[in-house]
């Protein structure tokens, strides 16, 4: 989806302003929002890809002018409704009016083991990678209406495979509840001069799935 989140190469946002001695959260609501999204992610029945997709559906003007945890709030409100955990009316009224779905909330003692558990998005598949390190590839020119992780600024660009990470869960499928559909994931290197048409000798890397790439 060509949303406002896909902002690589956009101009006009001004300088990067870093805050000295920045706190982890700037207000109690940010901390609560972070924790609510994490805790609901354990029990809600959605995937991280679906979570990202939900946060990206904000109207572009709103997305750009709102803070990170407001994106999360909008995403969570959407996911709760989509997964039958709360109705729009309940969210507005802050009062339960329909029966809850039976879920077992994560208890305090289970948080540390849960957040530190080594996970993996790699899945074994019965196929061989199409590309190997050193191969030249071209990214596809595509504009899906759904969630994808091929940024606009890297579409239709020629790059070089740097590494293959095995087959990983494909966000384009997983974000839509269509299954993990694992595909080979590669780190691809692009020359900044090719991507932007300027003279810098710098390079850009992105991690891209095989369906985003074609041989060239």
């Amino acid at each position: 989806m060509n949303g406002a989140h896909d902002c690589g190469g956009m101009m006009g946002f001004g300088p990067v302003r870093a805050e000295v001695n920045e706190p982890v959260f700037h207000a109690p609501w940010e901390a609560r929002m972070f924790a609510l999204m994490s805790a609901m992610g354990d029990v809600g029945g959605w995937t991280l890809d679906e979570d990202r997709a939900a946060c990206e559906t904000m109207e572009p003007g709103h997305y750009i002018t709102s803070s990170y945890y407001e994106h999360w709030l909008n995403g969570l409100e959407l996911l709760l409704q989509k997964h039958g955990l709360a109705t729009a009316e309940e969210i507005v009224s802050a009062r339960a009016s329909v029966p809850a779905r039976a879920v077992t909330p994560t208890v305090a003692e289970a948080i540390w083991p849960a957040v530190t558990a080594p996970g993996s998005y790699e899945r074994p598949i019965d196929a061989a990678p199409m590309f190997k390190a050193g191969d030249r590839v071209r990214t596809r020119q595509m504009n899906p209406v759904h969630h994808t992780r091929l940024p606009r600024y890297l579409r239709g660009q020629v790059g070089e495979i740097v590494a293959c990470h095995g087959a990983h869960v494909l966000p384009d499928s997983n974000s839509r509840g269509l299954g993990e559909d694992p595909r080979f994931l590669y780190t691809v290197r692009f020359k900044a001069s090719d991507v932007w048409g300027h003279a810098a000798r710098d390079v850009i890397h992105a991690d891209l799935w095989e369906p985003y790439l074609e041989a060239c």
């Binding site: 982890v24 959260f25 609501w29 901390a31 609560r32 929002m33 972070f34 924790a35 609510l36 994490s38 805790a39 609901m40 029990v43 809600g44 709030l73 969570l76 409100e77 709760l80 955990l85 709360a86 309940e90 969210i91 802050a94 009062r95 339960a96 809850a100 879920v103 909330p105 994560t106 208890v107 305090a108 289970a110 948080i111 540390w112 957040v115």
Partner: peptide, 28 residues
């Protein structure tokens, strides 16, 4: 809005407020 959402999710039995405290402390 966030406060309202938390009270709804606690009322519906989806989240344990003590677990939220631990999550925040973990990353702080």
């Amino acid at each position: 809005r966030v406060k309202a959402l938390e009270s709804l999710l606690v009322e519906k039995g989806y989240v344990d407020p003590k677990a939220l405290d631990v999550l925040i402390d973990t990353y702080e």
